[in-house]
Amino acid sequence: MVRCGGAVLRKYGNFIDDLRLYVRGGTGGMGYPRLGGEGGRGGDVWFVAQERTTLKSIRERYPQKRFVAGAGANSSVKALKGEKGKDCEVHVPLGISVLCDDGRQIGELNAAGERFLAARGGLGGSLATNFVPCKGQRRIVHLDLKLIADVGLVGFPNAGKSSLLSKISHAKPEIANYAFTTVQPELGKIMYADYKQIPVADLPGLIEGAHANKGMGHKFLKHVERTKQLLLVELELYKEELLTKPALLAINKMDLPCAKDNLNELMKQLQNPQDFLHLLQDEMIPANTLEFKDIIPISTYTGEGIEELKACIRKSIDEEAEQENEEYRKKKLQLLQTSGEQMNRS
């Protein structure tokens, strides 16, 4: 942290959400021309999603950021079919998109145990290759992390997101009375009496123009893409489809003087947003105004509204899950009906 002219400036934290790696499959083994022996195929490089893994830990453990699989065994008199080379497995965090060096997405890992073939091993030498082995696939890839959480807290600096996260979950984020206290995403879980847990992500404060990548901009806005529910501002300009996510609005700091007057004014603006859009700069006016499922006044200082907010979050998540289950049941029924019709025709 650096102080400059009375202001507090914070450098970007140790959180890493993008890592560039070199991956190479193993070279195949030599064939055995005299006896028609075939060399073993080279090993593959796999990315495997694992909980409690971070991109920072990968960088620290493998500073060269190079992952090469083992070579296939040569064919010999004792073993005409050479053994396959040893695979190289790289444990990566959940919520990883795998990108080519040109930015094209080639894979995604969202659940523990999911695997992605990053580089295939080369074929062993055989009659088809004149018994000469092939080299393994090699390329540069980017691991792009987007946090997975049911609820994403998004808002302007010093709006009280970290305080809210500490109130509704067991997380212990850094809290202070200046902007940009949060310089990396914080994850917590809301715990309910029936033991249900809802993951929540507190994302760093936005500045005006974050949609245009000002400040930390897209560095953190991308993390809201995989959340199911949002408490948000200024998202349409970043990615319009984010407005389709169910959204809750928490009005914080209700313990401050004039808070109720400000709340009444805000409610008027939310009820008739078109009457107030002229107050915004032209480039900030959204094409579509956001509708909130619930608006909850809260105070992270006094605890006002916290239990109500937790209940609203739970209700919204459960409704979303029920809707997804219903859509799944309908699709499954359609598939069964289609299969039955095809069998009848045949």
Rank of each mutant, 00 (worst) to 15 (best):
V77C: 11
G85W: 02
E38K: 14
G28R: 03
D102V: 08
D17C: 08
Q50S: 13
C88T: 12
Y22W: 14
E38S: 11
N14S: 14
D101Q: 14
Y12G: 06
I58Q: 01
L80I: 14
G28T: 04
P63L: 09
R41K: 15
D102G: 09
D87K: 09
V23M: 07
G36V: 12
V90S: 02
Y22M: 10
P93E: 10
G95W: 02
G37E: 01
Q50L: 07
Y12M: 08
W46F: 15
Q50A: 10
S76T: 15
V77W: 13
D44I: 11
K78N: 13
D87P: 02
A69F: 06
L94G: 00
G39E: 10
G85F: 02
E83R: 10
I16P: 00
R34S: 13
E60I: 05
Q64C: 09
Y22N: 07
S57M: 12
K11S: 13
E83M: 08
G28H: 03
V90I: 15
L55D: 00
E38C: 06
G36M: 15
V92Y: 01
G43D: 03
T53C: 03
N74Y: 06
L99H: 04
R66N: 09
E89S: 12
W46H: 13
D87V: 11
V48K: 01
G28W: 01
W46P: 06
K65A: 07
Y32M: 14
V90A: 03
P93N: 14
G26H: 01
L55S: 01
E83C: 04
V90P: 05
E38A: 11
E83Y: 03
G95I: 07
C100H: 15
V45Q: 03
T27Y: 06
S97W: 12
E83F: 04
A79V: 07
M30G: 12
A79H: 12
G13Q: 08
K81S: 09
G31D: 06
D18W: 04
N14G: 14
G40C: 13
A49E: 13
L35S: 11
Y32C: 09
D18P: 00
V48A: 00
K56L: 12
E51F: 04
T53Q: 08
L55I: 03
L80K: 08
G31W: 04
K11P: 00
D87R: 07
V48L: 03
E60F: 07
K56I: 07
E83P: 03
Y62S: 09
F67S: 10
T53M: 03
G37S: 05
S57T: 15
W46T: 05
K56G: 00
G26D: 01
V45M: 14
I96Y: 09
K81Y: 08
V90F: 04
E89L: 15
K65P: 07
G37V: 10
R66M: 15
G26V: 00
R59P: 02
K81P: 01
L21D: 02
K11I: 08
G37C: 04
K84C: 02
G42Q: 11
K56S: 04
G40A: 11
E51M: 09
R24L: 09
G42R: 05
C100A: 13
K84Y: 01
L35V: 14
V77S: 15
G31A: 12
V98P: 00
D101W: 15
L35T: 10
D101V: 10
A71Q: 07
